[in-house]
């Protein structure tokens, strides 16, 4: 059974993935997100940290079962076969969705949401383009989930955990009812997932936004 | 044994990954990159194509062993266990490097190389920042390869195939001898890989650039 300590900062959506995976797999995971164990911005910039984790990214799982630590959130190490996909087909599908979340969802989601959190300058053109990208992504998911409860196979896998976490800020901040109305399957799937006890234990109560958050100067 | 047709366009470095994986795994792979089988710019815009491959990205592997096709280059489907990593630890490591290539190497590599190919407008600040990122990446790889021939385990895996392909344009276009001098392990590893018969069959002779290509108006 995997075990370890996840060094992170509060509300880190990437750490949520590892935490939820551990809820499902039973991996024993400690969270270190406050001093003295770990202070974001200090600990992760210290030479000792950087010599172990050259990317300097957080969240970081310790110990990792190899000297090379790049998968900063350790989701594979903390998972079990059910989460990773128990057949070659399913595991290839899981990897597809994990890659889809990282490469197709996170860029436009961040471009749209960060200005509403006040952590990035607002750029109207970039936000409008990001909205179109998000529509395209939701349409792909909606189509796929038309005849499915979960993204891969018949139960929650790393695919659902990763894609839910990458959509989290969108649903909490900007996907107001009118915007999400054309994608009912995605909303159904998202709510099914976040209401699973394992998701709830980590995310708490997830409330879908009622009004699209605007740029927060 | 996996088999299929890879729809792509010539010189598509993403397709190289699948082709090299197939060379190692023995998967029977046909390449369709010219009309009438596939004309980039026409076929990939057709409704039939987009109804099957919602992302609209190329290269695309057909058939894919599930209706959901997101992993556009099908590297996992075309691989065997040796390429994917034959132990849980190794396979987690392979996934780390594949994710590292996509999330850490491709962004700065594109920012630096695209202007030199005339794909994008030159931006001095973005290029300088990308150079620093590439240095950081090469330093991480150089450190890791200090005591290793390949990235994971004792032989070529999907990690080497993916990272080599993500570095390909850097070595061919801009990593001139003075720039790559501080990272000898990476150069040694890169040359070892591209001189493997399986790599050579797909990439041909890879020549490292002698002079850093500049912005191509």
């Amino acid at each position: 059974m995997a075990a370890g300590t996840l060094y992170t900062y509060p509300e880190n959506w990437r750490a949520f993935k590892a935490q939820i995976a551990a809820q499902y797999s039973g991996a024993r995971l400690k969270i270190a997100s406050a001093s003295p164990a770990f202070t974001f911005g200090q600990t992760n910039r210290s030479p000792a940290f950087l010599s172990n984790f050259p990317l300097g990214k957080v969240s970081i799982l310790m110990p990792f079962f190899n000297s090379c630590v790049l998968d900063v959130d350790g989701i594979y190490q903390l998972s079990n076969d059910a989460l990773r996909g128990s057949t070659p087909q399913d595991s290839a599908q899981v990897l597809q969705w994990v890659s889809f979340a990282d490469s197709e969802i996170i860029p436009p989601a961040s471009a749209w949401v960060f200005p509403t959190l006040g952590i990035m300058q607002f750029n109207k053109q970039a936000t409008e383009q990001a909205k179109e990208e998000v529509k395209r992504i939701l349409a792909i998911l909606n189509q796929h989930l038309n005849t499915r409860t979960f993204l891969v196979g018949e139960r929650v896998s790393l695919a659902d955990i990763t894609v839910v976490c990458s959509l989290l800020w969108l649903y909490k901040q900007v996907l107001e009812p009118a915007f999400r109305q054309p994608y009912p399957n995605v909303t159904r799937w998202f709510l099914t997932c976040v209401n699973q006890p394992q998701f709830k234990a980590v995310l708490g109560e997830v409330k879908l936004c009622e009004k699209m958050a605007q740029f927060d100067a | 044994m996996a088999a299929g047709t890879l729809y792509t366009y010539p010189e598509n470095w993403r397709a190289f990954k699948a082709q090299i994986a197939a060379q190692y795994s023995g998967a029977r792979l046909k390449i369709a990159s010219a009309s009438p089988a596939f004309t980039f710019g026409q076929t990939n815009r057709s409704p039939a194509f987009l109804s099957n491959f919602p992302l609209g990205k190329v290269s695309i592997l057909m058939p894919f062993f599930n209706s959901c096709v997101l992993d556009v280059d099908g590297i996992y489907q075309l691989s065997n266990d040796a390429l994917r990593g034959s132990t849980p630890q190794d396979s987690a490591q392979v996934l780390q490097w594949v994710s590292f290539a996509d999330s850490e190497i491709i962004p700065p590599a594109s920012a630096w190389v695209f202007p030199t190919l005339g794909i994008m407008q030159f931006n001095k600040q973005a290029t300088e920042q990308a150079k620093e990122e590439v240095k950081r990446i090469l330093a991480i790889l150089n450190q890791h390869l200090n005591t290793r021939t390949f990235l994971v385990g004792e032989r070529v895996s999907l990690a080497d195939i993916t990272v080599v392909c993500s570095l390909l344009w850097l070595y061919k276009q801009v990593l001139e001898p003075a720039f790559r001098q501080p990272y000898p392990n990476v150069t040694r590893w890169f040359l070892t890989c591209v001189n493997q018969p399986q790599f050579k069959a797909v990439l041909g002779e890879v020549k490292l650039c002698e002079k850093m290509a500049q912005f191509d108006a």
């Binding site: 900062y9 509060p10 509300e11 880190n12 974001f40 911005g41 990214k57 957080v58 490469s103 996170i106 860029p107 436009p108 961040s110 471009a111 960060f114 959190l117 006040g118 952590i119 990035m120 970039a126 383009q129 990001a130 990208e133 | 366009y9 010539p10 010189e11 598509n12 004309t39 980039f40 710019g41 990205k57 190329v58 999330s103 962004p107 594109s110 920012a111 695209f114 190919l117 005339g118 794909i119 994008m120």
Partner: peptide, 30 residues
């Protein structure tokens, strides 16, 4: 948490790069 989030390295321009690359190779392939 927002401050930490701001330090994440995100490839915001990825869609723009994807589009440029696609157009370039479509042009190259006539």
């Amino acid at each position: 948490a927002a401050e930490c989030l701001a330090q994440e390295r995100i490839w915001f321009d990825k869609p723009r790069y994807d589009e440029a690359e696609r157009q370039f190779y479509e042009r190259m392939n006539g």
